[in-house]
Structures are given as C-alpha cells and as structure tokens.
Nucleic acid binder design. Structure first.
Lengths: 226, 226
DNA sequence: GCAAAAGTGTTCACACTACACCCATGT
DNA sequence: ACATGGGTGTAGTGTGAACACTTTTGC
C-alpha cells in the first residue's frame, strides 16, 4: 500500500464567501491582501487545508482566526479547479459560503482594521484570483436556495418582525414582493413561530416578533420568483 | 514565493457516478476492485488528479480508459472530505456525475468484463469507501435537477417518442406522472422539437419522434413532484 | 372488430395575485 | 386628526390536476 502523500498533489484550499445582513443591505466580507500575489487587492478569506483537517474544521479556523466568528451557518458551494487560478501553482479551492449576523460579532470589530471590510453585494470591487466567479456563484446559490429552503434566518436576530424578514427576502432576491402574500406564505409553511411578544420603541403600531421554527417537519415553502 | 507542492497535501481524486438508461431502468456503472482496500467490492470509477489536469480532463480520462466512453454530460456534484474515507490515507474526492446512453457505447462492451457492470439504482450492492453516500447524493441531485432543467435527454437516443421521455421521468423520479399533462408541460416549455418523422415498426399507432431543443431560450419548465 | 398505444380536449378546483380595509401608535 | 407602518381579509384569475374521447395500427 503506497503512501499518497509521497506523491506531489495539488494544494487544497477553502475560500469563504461570508454573507452578512445589516441595515437592509446584504454584504460580503473581504480581506485586503498584504502579500503577493494580488497584494493590496481585495479577496475572499481562505486558507490551506491541513492533512488531518475536515472542511468544517478549516472553515471554523478561518472564521475564528481571521474574523473572530464562530458557530455560523455553512454550506459547501463548489470546487474550483482551473489550473491557472493561482499564479503560485496548482491550488484547488473548495468554496463554501457562510451566513452570519454581523451584530453578533461586533466584538471582533477591533480586529476589523482596514484589511477586513464588509462590502455590499451591489458594490463589490475587483477581486484577486477567481474570487469574483466564486462570489457570483455563492450569491446565485443563496438566491435560489432561499426560495425553497429556510436559509436566511441566520442573517437575522433570534427574534425578528415579519417586515424584517420580508425586507431580507426582497434584498437578497432584488425584487419587490407583496408584503401580505409573503406573510401568508411564510406563515402557511410554518417557517416561523409567533412569540407573542411585541417589539417596543417603534413609532407606530408594535409589530409581533417571530422566531425561526426549528422543528419544521416538511418544507412546503416555494416562492416562485421570475 | 513558496512552492506549494513541496508541502504535504491530501491526495485529490475524482469519483464518477455514471448513469445510464436502458430498457426502462436507470442504472449506474460500478467497478469491481481487484486490489486492496475493498478488494472484490463494487465501487464507483475514479482516479487521482494529476498536477496539471482539470477535473474535466480527469473525468474524460476515467471515462475513456476505464469505460471506453467519451463526450458525455458531466456535472460536478460535491466534494467529500471525511478524513477517514480512504483507509490508505487522506484522500479528498470531488464527485461528479455523468449521463450517458448505454447504447452508444455498446462497442466498448468488450471491455465490460465481470469487473465493470451496470446496476439498476434500485439494486445497488454494498459499496466500498463512502461510495454509497456519493451515489445517493448523485441520485438526489439528478432527481431534483430534472424537475426544472433539461437534463435527461442525454440518456435517450437523438430522437425519441414522448412516451419514452415520459417513462424516463417516471423512472428517475419513481412516481407516476399523468401522460397527457406531462406531454403538455414538455411541449409548452419548448423542451423538444417535433421532427415530423414517425417511428415505424410499432404494433400500434406510429408515435411522433422528437428531438431535444438545443436553442432553448429561457427555461419555463417546472414539474412540481410531491 | 378488437386491443393497445398515441394524440387531443375539457372541466374543475385550488393556489396565487392583486388588491382594500382596519388597527395601533406618536406627533 | 393625521401619518405611518402593521395585521387581516377577499375577489378574481389562471394554472395544473384529473379525467374522456378519438385516432391509428396489427391481428
């Protein structure tokens, strides 16, 4: 039995598309590279896989060390294999995307110097490597998945109003959705549970607060956007 | 700038789930391993990635050398990373699935000794490694994708009857679909073009032959199964 | 004429859209 | 009283599921 590691293998990395939702804007976390190649260019956070590490562990490592985050929604996206995608040599990137609530990691904002920044998805700068392609694929995945699967709650607080959820969907999908029909669909699908609590401090009528229904039996939800 | 290949990296392989449709049955190609580990067990065909090779190229290499096939529909499925998935050491597998028409590769049947065989998806034997998991994921992907995307034509001949297409969908999805409603949906979505030719040799009325509409503008198709 | 598969049409119910109206709260 | 956002209801339309009938062919 041969030892594979004796052979030359391509390097294996994970790149992360970290989505955050804040002030009615969907954003992505980017790092400003401080070394070649692509020095001073914005890129997705990433790291190389260690020999005994799972993707999950590596993702956590990236999120913790570079971004001070933990315990977030993660999903494998796609594996990018273009032989010339990294000028340093052959690097295969297993892209993942994460959904986080930026508010929860405000503590880590100290680390957030000029070299780590949120960028609205509508205003992504030029990216190094093939990261633009990765980002685009991640956004598409999120947009299609949110139409039939309860993803997106990870971007909000524990409790949220129907309006906030509605705005999130409109923001991610980039379309207008009828407020009342949306509400009915969410309720019919039993995506959320009414906590009975109402949010105080509003200028108008106090909206009801909902939380995500974690014990969702079967998924009836289907949004049908263009 | 460091040379990555100097470091120890996990080995990188591609495993293939090759689907074929024949005599109203969806099948998968399996290889009988003739070496350890999992000697004499059935496994998915696969191979290790070479340093300058793309996934696409590697898939072609596997299909050609092991199976005598070429020019097939291919799609990346998922990347499997469990550290213990291969007893020989750390191997990451980038799974792909392929759709082929077995009839077209009947020539290669000479190669098809006891060690390469089609297995109906309903009768998959115990598989080595984590290949059962890979197979399951591939089938699920195919089942969901066929409901909204014109995949599946690759499994049929160039020209086919509506009944054949209908049977294919029922077979892949494992449900009954109303013949007439199905036909209307396929036609409305402009998935197919009526060639005007009718198939001879039938015992009954001669069915019209269709071919896949390759110039499909936008995809209206949506099947909505269970 | 009969059986069996292929082609076409029709009804009906429900789901989704597009609305309107009332309620609660601050100014 | 009014403006603003929140909560609920309803009428109409269109799509899709369920179903029936006619046509073509071999025996």
């Amino acid at each position: 039995m041969k030892a594979f590691s004796a052979y030359k293998n391509p390097a294996l990395a994970v790149d992360l598309v970290v989505f955050g939702y804040h002030e009615k804007t969907l954003s992505v976390l980017l790092l400003n590279r401080n070394e070649e190649p692509f020095k001073d260019r914005w890129t997705l956070p990433g790291a190389f896989l260690q020999m005994e590490e799972s993707f999950q562990q590596l993702c956590s490592r990236i999120l913790q060390t570079k971004l001070g985050m933990d315990n977030v929604y993660l999903e494998q996206l796609y594996t990018f294999d273009a032989p010339d995608r990294d000028p340093r040599g052959r690097v295969i990137a297993v892209a993942h995307y994460a959904l986080i609530n930026p508010k929860k990691f405000a503590v880590a904002a100290g680390k957030m110097a000029n070299d780590v920044q949120w960028f609205p998805v509508k205003k992504i700068p030029a990216l190094g490597f093939d990261h633009k392609e990765i980002f685009t694929k991640a956004l598409q995945r999120l947009q299609s998945k949110i139409q039939y699967f309860p993803v997106g709650f990870q971007l909000l607080d524990e409790m949220f109003t129907m309006s906030e959820l509605h705005e999130l969907y409109e923001c991610i999908l980039g379309v207008e959705i009828d407020r009342r029909n949306f509400s009915r669909k969410i309720l019919d699908a039993e995506y959320v549970i009414n906590t009975g609590i109402k949010r105080e401090g509003s200028q108008n009528r106090r909206p009801e607060l909902f939380k995500f229904n974690k014990k969702l039996k079967q998924n009836n939800f289907q949004l049908n956007i263009s």
